[in-house]
Structures are given as structure tokens and as C-alpha cells.
Design a protein around this nucleic acid. Structure first.
Lengths: 192, 192
DNA sequence: ATACTATGAGAACGCTCGTTCTCACGCAAG
DNA sequence: CTTGCGTGAGAACGAGCGTTCTCATAGTAT
């Protein structure tokens, strides 16, 4: 199905290395060594490093959101609980030993100023995540603006967990999200 | 006072270029051209690029927090208003034409995986910012945990403003902060 | 068997970048 | 005047990296 096994091995190695060390710090031959493929095949499948970076970000975007949605779907059917389950998933993520922040925030920080494609990939990823949280928020009876606020908490938790090196920001953000979701907080001012 | 004018010109050029394009994308000779100083002087004042990066981050850390504190001090004497003024300052920042996200989040994303010094600089900056918000929060009668939550909102607003390219996240975060500050939100669970 | 094609392994090329070196020049001390 | 020393400008060096090329080999069709 994922037809080409060499392609997958390359993307696995690229994702692991790019995410851990940054994109510019990882050379093509390092990826070749890690994936066990020959340089010729590597360039047949990804004609330039930019193509490989694009494929890395695209696959990570899809998988990340799939993993989150799967967790939310398996957590509970209570709409409010589904929204809060996002933060449990974040805490799981932050606790993984190879956690190193959001790959899109990182690559935007590294290349957003010089590569419009990387900047667009980050924007797309965050837009999708933002829309997903708004969907969960409105399903829970809250406003879309509350979804936006909760997205800000999630983003802040990612940055903070990465830089501080601890997963504590996930539970802090979850508690704040709970407060923002309490009925009685009139919060219809910002429709987007 | 800032004794060495060449040193300041170098740091001005480095800050502008590093912040706009990323650290690895800017070579030492580009900084030399932009600052008008000779390569020899550049290396006399900063023996390696790593030293220049360290000085860039240290100066930006100090100036950024000074600018924020100055704005807060001039905004109002109402403790709650002082905390909320942080988000007005953020919105001003996000609106500046050269805004490109938080320099520390960016440099952490670029070099945090390979340079412990850059990672430590980012951690220090965020710790200081976090402590300042906690101070404003407790002065406003809120808990330190509320300060932490508001810090997460501010962090999320920075990332989101950078990647989306709009300053709207500042007002969204401000509104959320106001809600988190409303009395009646019992919020003593997380002492830090 | 032979000629052609595709592949593996890695050398090679061209470029960039951090860092250092060369060399001519100006200026102060004797 | 001249001797030496610090300085300016830029060339040079060495390493790393993205990308391409070489060449020997293995498999295949005729």
C-alpha cells in the first residue's frame, strides 16, 4: 500500500533526523546512511533536499493530526471530554523521550524566513489544527472563539514543553481550557 | 556608555539579520557588510560566530523584557490592567512590519537540538518571562497558576501570530486572559 | 556467449561558510 | 628619516554539503 518501501525508509530516517537535529543540520548523506539506501535512489525518489523536506512535513502533518483525532475518538463520546482529551494527548506526546517540540514551529523558526514553502506548510498545519479545535469546541456547545482560545493554549503548551523540557504545561493548559469552557463565561465577541 | 560603537553596530546588524533570516542562513561576511566593520574587528570582538549568537540572544532578552516592562509600567496602575497590558504590547509587536515571531522560539527551533547554549538561552528567556507574568498575576490578586496559564496564552499568541502572519491572536489571547482572571474561577490547583 | 541496461558504492565537483593569513599602508617613537 | 606596529581590505584555507558522475558488476534479452 505505502507502495515503495525505500521511500518509507527514507522518510522515516529523514523525519527522525530532521526532527531531532533540525533540517539544515542533517545532510543528505546522513539520511542515506540512516536509511540504508543508495544516494542514487535517494535522488531518484526525492530530486532535491527541498522535495524531501516537503514530503517530511506533509507526512508528519497528516500523521500528527490522525494520531490526535484517533485519540480523541477513542477517549469519550462526551463532547466536552473530547475537547479536553486533546490535552491528555499532548501530555503523552510531551512525555515521549524523543519529544522536541512541534516540528512545524521548529521548521518555521529555522526556515520560515527564507523558504516560503516551509512557511506555507507550517501555516497549513496550524490552520488545520485550529479548525479541528474549533470543531471540537462548537460540538461541545462552546463558541468558535473559545476554540481559538484553546488553540492558543495548546500552542503555548507545545512551545513551553519543548523549551522547558517538562510536560507540565499540558496539564496547566488543560486546566485553563476547562475554565474557558465553563458556562457563564460569556465569550461571543470574536467570531473567528 | 555602551562603550564600543563598533560592537553595537555589529550587534544591531546581527540582530536584524539573524531575526529576519535565521542564524544559520546569515554568514559572518554578511554581518560584516551590514555593519561596515572589518572582518578582523568582528573576530576581535566576537571570537566565533557562537559568541556573536550568544551576545545577540542576551541583548535581545534584556531589551525585550525591558520594553515589555516599560509598557506595563506606563499603562496603568491597576494591577489587573497591568497584566492585561501585556497583550496590548504583544499586539503592537505583532503589528510591526519586521515581526517574525519570538526570536527565542525561532532559535530554539533552529539550533535547540544541536546547541545546548542556544537551548539554555531560550529556557532562561522563557523562565524570566514566565516569572514576570506570575508576578503581575499575583499582584492582581490571582494565583501563580493563573499567571502560568496566561503565559501559555502569550506563548501561543506569539507562535500563532508568526506563522499565521496576522496579529489577531493577541486580542484573542487577551480575551481569554480576561476570562481566566474573572473572580469565581477557582484555580488554586497548580501552585507553580 | 554477447551486448545492453540498470544498479551499487562512493569519488568528485562546485559552492558556501567560518576562520585565518597576507600584504600594503599610515602613523607614532626614536 | 626610519623602524616597527596596528589596521584595513580582501584573498586564502579547510571543511561540509547538495548534487552529479564514474565505473565495475550483475542480470537479461537475443
Amino acid at each position: 500500500m505505502d507502495t515503495n518501501p525505500a521511500r518509507e525508509r527514507i522518510l522515516d530516517a529523514a523525519e527522525h533526523l530532521f526532527y531531532a537535529r533540525g533540517i539544515q543540520a542533517v545532510g543528505m548523506d546522513v539520511i542515506r546512511n540512516a536509511s540504508g539506501v543508495t544516494l542514487r535512489r535517494l535522488y531518484q525518489l526525492f530530486p532535491s533536499k527541498g522535495d524531501l523536506v516537503k514530503a517530511y512535513l506533509a507526512r508528519r502533518d497528516a500523521r500528527w493530526l490522525q494520531s490526535l483525532a484517533r485519540h480523541v475518538d477513542m477517549a469519550t463520546e462526551n463532547p466536552r471530554g473530547r475537547l479536553l482529551a486533546v490535552f491528555d494527548w499532548l501530555e503523552d506526546w510531551f512525555t515521549q523521550p524523543d519529544f522536541h517540540g512541534c516540528a512545524f514551529i521548529n521548521s518555521f523558526g529555522e526556515l520560515g524566513g527564507t523558504s516560503p514553502e516551509v512557511a506555507a506548510a507550517a501555516r497549513h498545519h496550524k490552520d488545520t489544527f485550529h479548525a479541528y479545535l474549533q470543531e471540537l469546541a462548537t460540538a461541545a456547545g462552546a463558541s468558535a472563539a473559545t476554540g481559538t482560545q484553546i488553540a492558543l493554549l495548546a500552542e503555548g503548551a507545545m512551545s513551553t514543553a519543548a523549551i522547558s523540557g517538562t510536560p507540565a504545561s499540558a496539564s496547566h493548559a488543560k486546566l485553563a481550557a476547562q475554565l474557558l469552557l465553563t458556562p457563564g463565561n460569556r465569550n461571543d465577541a470574536f467570531p473567528s
